[in-house]
Amino acid sequence: MKTALGFAVAAIVFAVLALAPFYLDAYGIGLMIGMTGYVTLASAWGLFSGRTGYVSLATVAFFGMGAYTVAVLNETLPYPVILLVAGAIGLLVAAVVGFSTLRLAGVYFVIFTFGLAELIRQLVTWFETTVTGTLGRYIFLPIGPEHIYWQLLVLCAATLLITWWVGRSRLGLALRVISDDEVVASHIGIDIARTKLALFAVSAVIITLVGAIQAPRWTYVEPAIVFNPTVSFLTLIMALLGGASRLWGPALGAIPLFLLFEWLSANFPNHYSILLGLLFIVIVFLLPRGVAGFAEDLMRRRPGGTPAPAKPAPTPLRSEGGEARP
């Protein structure tokens, strides 16, 4: 009953959002595209990192690969095929990265993903300058901003649906055991590395698709544009502000932060990075479990005035910090 109600509300919200291009001007649609893009990125990031505790800094590596695939193939293949190719490339790279690092401790993964975008950017640049001899490509696709927006909206809904499904599938149960105790998980027969790898691949493919769908927004693409590391950092902080391990958490963080960053970059372009950094620190210190976790704490505390005993959060990321809170 509750689930059905949730689905109905979500469907109505998405239907209303889908009508937005009929009422908004060009700037408004651009804003909606950016926001939907970041909600999807943050949700996909939370799908993997929020549930496994492996902090991925490779968002823009996949995002950029998607966008660059479109730039390379936009004159030779039909658009839907390009999207498939982009998704396949994302899957392949995620498999390689996941296979080599996910068996190890989280630190290795963080370090590896930290440089992955830079590595891919360098490789693409090298390939373009030495093999094809052109750096920078044009995208001419007959896709208007409202089509990009609708595609992103569908992808966003799909991401949330997958996240919801993972939460109640065998995979989700396995993840919950792993996050509680890896030793127990391996003893009852859960293949830890494969579970993490599967989730990483799904999240990476979604992120690649976001890049591919947004690519026609730029008519001119070069590696330095699409592999902009800020995308990784923004995604991370949005997901964490909202609460990475919850279904609606990343969206909850992405919407206000996206608007804030838009405003900051318009009004304080020179001090943008300082303000972003301070925001990181403030969030770590004040909202260690994200907005969603904070709201739950408030809800639990309100009835009767006596705080209920802190229930251990279901997932590892940003949960221990919360238990130490009064």
Binding site: F233, E320, G321
Partner: peptide, 27 residues
Amino acid sequence: RRSKGGAALEIDSILATFGLLFVIQGV
């Protein structure tokens, strides 16, 4: 102090020093 030896420290320290990175870089 807050993490009390828990796993949250790793993520928290990554985020806090990330913030510091941006602040120093911005300055």
